[in-house]
């Protein structure tokens, strides 16, 4: 099963390689990973999407906790949360297909961020399913290039 882990870490040199080294060394898989500073200067937040059965996720969480620079590990799957990914998609947009491309982008609330005579660069954000959906729809029209971020996630406020 897929799990999104949110890991708060001390922002120190080498800390990212401690995390990735742990995953490669122990044979855990990483589907995606993003990391950036938080409002606290010394703390970074790493969002990591991985998969495995319950016992593997338990080991991953425990091993992450064991790293000296890790402050907190949250398995988002145990909470209500929102997650978002972003993709930049270069899609063929010639005279005959432009209108259709724009319609698709509109449905997915994407944005055209670069235009050339033969293509658009489209920006979309959303859940993984939404990104997958727009890619599936644009593919027959002609996708030339895709760049995607990993997921970022945040727990919902308790109501």
């Amino acid at each position: 099963m897929r799990h999104t882990l949110s890991v708060l870490l001390q922002n120190k040199p080498g800390v990212l390689s401690r995390v990735t080294g742990l995953f490669s060394g122990r044979g855990f898989n990483i589907e995606s990973l993003t990391v950036a500073p938080t409002i606290e200067k010394e703390v970074s937040c790493l969002t990591l999407v991985t998969s495995g059965d319950e016992s593997i996720i338990e080991q991953i969480t425990k091993q992450l906790h064991k790293l000296i620079d890790v402050i907190k590990v949250t398995d988002m799957s145990e909470h209500e949360y929102v997650d978002r990914e972003m993709a930049l998609i270069r899609v063929k947009a010639e005279a005959s297909t432009r209108a259709e491309v724009l319609r698709v982008i509109d449905i997915f609330r994407g944005k055209v961020v670069d235009v050339s005579p033969k293509s658009y660069v489209v920006e979309v954000t959303g859940s993984q399913t939404k990104i997958k959906a727009i890619i599936d729809i644009l593919r027959p029209i002609g996708i030339q290039e895709i760049v995607r971020t990993g997921a970022v996630a945040m727990t919902r406020a308790v109501k």
């Binding site: 390689s17 080294g21 060394g25 000296i68």
Partner: peptide, 14 residues
């Protein structure tokens, strides 16, 4: 050496 010993130390420092 910090990179080399990362997976076989409890922690390491430069």
């Amino acid at each position: 050496i910090v990179g080399i010993t990362r997976p076989c130390t409890k922690h390491n420092y430069l």
